[in-house]
Amino acid sequence: MAKGLIDLDRVGMTYQAASGPVEALAGISASIGAGEFVSLVGPSGCGKSTLLRIVAGLRPATTGTITVAGRAVTQPIPDIGMVFQAPILLKWRSILENVLLPAELAGKDPRSLRSRAEQLLEMAGLGGFGTKLPRELSGGMQQRAALCRALLLDPPLLLMDEPFGALDAMTRDDMALELLRIWGEKDVAREARKTVLFVTHSIPEAVFLSDRVIVMSARPGRIAADLRIDLPRPRTVELRATEAFGKLNLEIFRALTGKTSMGTAF
């Protein structure tokens, strides 16, 4: 098996529910290379968020092995940044202090990272907002701050769990572009970019962002398809209107549903 930054080898996960054991994931094998942007799409409850947490070492897999950067994952791994569906900023801290939180949690001196935090906020378009409280920012801005927090310690791996799922459609499309810009689509060499594992419900979002889309089936979650997205980077708004973009959407839709036509789903 190819050695990537993340290697999943027949990963399965079964949990005990009140009604008995539930198989959430079965036989997940995949290899994700350094610098790759990979999206996980699948129906609700297919275990894609669980898989993300297994990669982070936050949940144990029942079977199989997970290797990140050559080391088996048995407990939470520190070299990751996480972004969740909700920004989960601490309400009592300013935006800047929220961005610095990982430093404090990891036992680093937040003062030494202050200028980096300010740079990140600047880059995310939150330059003047460092001293504001989270509630003074819009949902989209809060989620940008959460992204800055995830990037503070410069982790090689970014795990994102439906980060734009709670935003309105327009903000969502904006955030996708922002994310690619911050990720360094234009100005960072491919190998030097962060590896991103991105969970989403949205097929167009997955296609727009990713180098690769892994389609998962309903419970137990299995890999139904693993598609390379060979669209040119940097991605632009116009790309959404191209035939190639549409075809990839359709292909993923088919893999997801087993249907040959999009019907009325779009």
Partner: peptide, 14 residues
Amino acid sequence: VEPDMLDLGRVFNA
């Protein structure tokens, strides 16, 4: 406290 926030703490081994 939101479970995701606690996960964040666990990631950094706080």
